[in-house]
């Protein structure tokens, strides 16, 4: 958030921890007490999470929803045999499921990283 400020260097004795706290009022408490600053942090977190959730949902549901259109626009795709099965059976009956699980793993990986980053940011400030 304070990228434009000149970079500050903290010089302390390695024994003390007190001086490392740059803010006397941590953001965790700002959030907890519903201040403007806290609300700003929460809004940015929510926006990131919503964007990620929608991205994953659209990445999976978009192509899936396009399949019936594909089948009717290119009739060949209704009957062509791939790997021993007609394409619609292969895609709708088998291939969908690994894709969905992979998308779910990707989502959890990303969202946990987002939350960890957020927690680090808030706690170190």
């Amino acid at each position: 958030m304070n990228a434009e400020r000149p970079r500050r260097v903290v010089v302390t004795s390695p024994w003390t921890r007190a001086t490392r706290r740059s803010r006397s009022y941590p953001i965790v408490r700002e959030i907890d007490e519903q201040s403007e600053v806290g609300a700003l942090y929460m809004r940015s977190l929510m926006r990131t999470q919503l964007r990620l959730g929608l991205l994953v949902v659209l990445l999976v549901c978009g192509p899936l929803a396009a399949l019936p259109v594909l089948f009717s626009v290119v009739p060949l795709t209704k009957t062509v045999v791939v790997l021993g099965l007609p394409l619609p059976w292969l895609v709708l009956g088998l291939a969908v499921y690994p894709v969905v699980v992979a998308a779910a793993c990707y989502y959890v990986w990303r969202v946990e990283r987002t939350e960890r980053d957020f927690a680090d940011l808030v706690e170190q400030s």
Binding site: L50, L52, G53, L54, V56, V57, V60, C61, L64, V96, Y97, V100, A103, A104, Y107, V108
Partner: peptide, 11 residues
């Protein structure tokens, strides 16, 4: 039934 759970997970 499956993708419904993905939507549930993501949102």
């Amino acid at each position: 039934y499956t993708v419904g759970y993905l939507v549930l997970l993501a949102l």
